[in-house]
Design a protein around this nucleic acid. Structure first.
Length: 564
RNA sequence: UACCUGGUGGUGUAAUUGGCAACACAAGGGAUUUUGGUUCCCUCGUUCAAGGUUCGAGUCCUUGCCGGGUAGCCA
């Protein structure tokens, strides 16, 4: 932990609030936050912002952080999602969350009892209006709503009806429990909001023990109160819900009083971040699953080779505010490059192989050369790479007609094979279609290791793999899934699919990798020189190794070429 | 149209709470380099507008303009 740097950073507005509360002695100096997802989908990078915020706050102020499932709507929720969310939150925070995972469904009985208390206080009533009728009587921004004809039912009748709702005497949609607040409020949330609805469906945890389920507004503050959350942080669209959040808490005596704060959710260009749309992508088979490396899900980013550190760092640099902003995805891409540059092991890999024969190198001979594992970190040491007469280089690294500033291999030109020898191109062969299929070179035995005794310079250095020793692998390259700057913004479900990038996945077969890549750890990350960062895919087998491209390297060759 | 909420470089986030507008990313330029990567240096904004208070305003007040949110028995 880089403690001194941490203290230099200025506070974001939430840290400011927490510090003020700490100073004033609120909650006895205690800080408790939570991340409260509904288990109705996989987590995505937007959730990461919330997780980092809540976890970071608890960590910074020596508080507690809970993962709480807001599982109050059985029709949308599944155990698969619960498991993936636990996994993802653990991964991002690096915390086991031992004894700190809770479920709203565990509080159903307590919430029910509190609802009864509200009825007894004359603050809630059972309403027989249909959904249609409720909508029709809610009013408009300019006109107040009309009171429900059932608004003045007696406490006894409400108690009886609510009890029968719970026992399953009524069909879905026939009755609700509503809070008696103010049908004329300019805030729609206070126009007698529904607290409970009837849903005869199997809940992934409580089964059929309940057939009435609390609405978000009724449930959320209670959950926070039960868990003694001091700072309940949610996104901006819940701002209008805060008066209701407070109203519900006000009605109950002697309970812990949390407070809600709002921040702007993450907006990333080129990225769809709605669970509904991501679910559509999965169901419609536009991607291979929730953990498809092109998905903005935590599972997808993780499979692609993103590290939790890079995501935490990303969240730190984008900051928190109440302004709805759109962050450029290059920020995220930069975060992973930045992290991987420091830690990824350097390896040589050739994605588009071109055969090179060293004519003056003895047939059947081979030797081992020393290569540095990571110039950014000397502790990573060195390794041996085999060299022989026949090699593979990247197709891009040879040009028949080299442009002016092209530093790589071309007829008559000399380049350095990294960690090996200087070679000079003497000849090349083409196939019937005019594609270069083989390049012939001579090497200078004096330049072993990559430097010459006469001190002559070569402009270019290229990577290579010995043909006889190479590992054959499949490499998957990923591009952005969407081509439009902000498809998630105004467009609807139909529109955003037109922005799907058909070239977002490229599978490269017959890639040649240096033999040390034969036995790698799934957690290892590699930089293939000039190509980018890679990691092993979960589909990989020893017979058929598969690597994912995590991120590309910044490549300014295009700029050089443009300038001529 | 009613209510809520926000507006600081190309993009985001800061500004000791009224005291010389800073940091990151992007872009452009340069240096170093056994890959054109990495690293390092330089350049790029008078804070939505107008008015007011003040010695002094990004910060406080007024008005206007623009953006986002809200009328589920979703969360």
């Amino acid at each position: 932990m880089s403690e001194p740097q941490e203290k230099e950073r200025s506070l974001n507005f939430l840290e400011q609030i927490v510090e003020d509360d700490l100073k004033s002695g609120k909650h006895g100096g205690r800080v408790a936050t939570r991340f409260p997802p509904e288990p109705n989908g996989y987590l995505h990078i937007g959730h990461a912002k919330s997780i980092c915020l809540n976890f970071g706050l608890a960590q910074k102020y020596d508080g507690t952080f809970y993962l709480r499932f807001d599982d109050t709507n059985p029709s949308k929720e599944e155990t698969e999602y619960v498991e993936s969310i636990i996994d993802d939150v653990r991964w991002i925070t690096g915390d086991t969350l031992h004894n700190r995972i809770f479920f709203a469904s565990d509080y159903f009985k307590q919430m029910y009892d509190w609802a009864v208390e509200l009825i007894q206080k004359g603050k809630a009533y059972v309403c027989d209006l249909s959904g249609e009728e409720v909508r029709a009587t809610r009013g408009t921004p300019t006109e107040p709503g009309k009171p429900s004809p059932f608004r003045e039912r007696s406490v006894e009748e409400n108690l009886d009806l609510f009890e029968r709702m719970r026992k399953g005497d009524f069909q879905d949609g026939t009755r609700t429990l509503r809070a008696k607040i103010d049908m004329a409020s300019p805030n729609f949330n206070l126009r007698d909001p529904v607290m409970y609805r009837i849903v005869h469906a199997e809940h992934h945890r409580t089964g059929y023990t309940w057939c009435i389920y609390p609405m978000y507004d009724w449930a959320h503050g209670l959950e926070d109160s039960i868990e003694k959350i001091t700072h309940s942080i949610c996104t901006l669209e819940f701002e209008h819900h805060r008066p209701l959040y407070d109203w519900f808490l006000d009605q109950l005596d002697g309970i812990f009083r949390p407070r809600q704060y709002e921040f702007a959710r993450l907006g990333l260009n080129y990225t769809v971040m709605s669970k509904r749309k991501l679910l559509e992508l999965v169901r419609g088979k536009h991607v291979h699953g929730w953990d498809d490396p092109r998905m903005p899900t935590i599972a997808g980013l993780r499979r692609r080779g993103y590290t939790p550190e890079s995501i935490r760092n990303f969240c730190k640099t984008i900051g928190v505010a109440k302004f709805n902003s759109t962050i450029d995805v290059v920020m995220l891409e930069n975060a992973i490059r930045d992290d991987l540059n420091k830690r990824a092991l350097r390896r040589m890999g050739v994605l588009h192989p071109l055969k090179v024969v060293i004519d003056n190198y003895p047939e059947g001979q081979s030797e081992e050369l020393d290569a540095i594992n990571n110039p950014e970190n000397e502790a990573d040491g060195t390794r041996k790479v085999p060299f022989s007469k026949t090699l593979y280089i990247e197709q891009d690294d040879f040009r028949e007609d080299a442009p002016k500033k092209y530093f790589r291999l071309a007829p008559g030109k000399e380049v350095r094979l990294r960690y090996a020898y200087y070679i000079t191109c003497t000849d090349f062969k083409k196939d019937a279609d005019g594609n270069v299929i083989e390049v012939h070179c001579t090497y200078d035995p004096q330049t072993r290791g990559g430097s010459s005794p006469d001190g002559r310079k070569v402009q270019g250095t290229i990577h290579w793999v010995s043909a006889d020793h190479a590992l054959d692998a499949e490499v998957r390259e990923y591009d952005r899934l969407f081509t439009q700057p902000n498809p998630d913004d105004p467009s609807d479900l139909n529109d955003y699919k037109t922005y799907l990038n058909p070239d977002s996945l490229r599978i490269l077969k017959g890639c040649k990798l240096e033999p040390s890549l034969r036995d790698v750890n799934p957690e290892d990350r590699f930089q293939f020189e000039r190509l980018g960062y890679f990691c092993l895919d979960k589909d990989s087998t020893p017979e058929k190794p598969v690597f994912n491209r995590t991120a590309s390297l910044r490549d300014s060759w295009a700029k050089v070429e443009k300038k001529g």
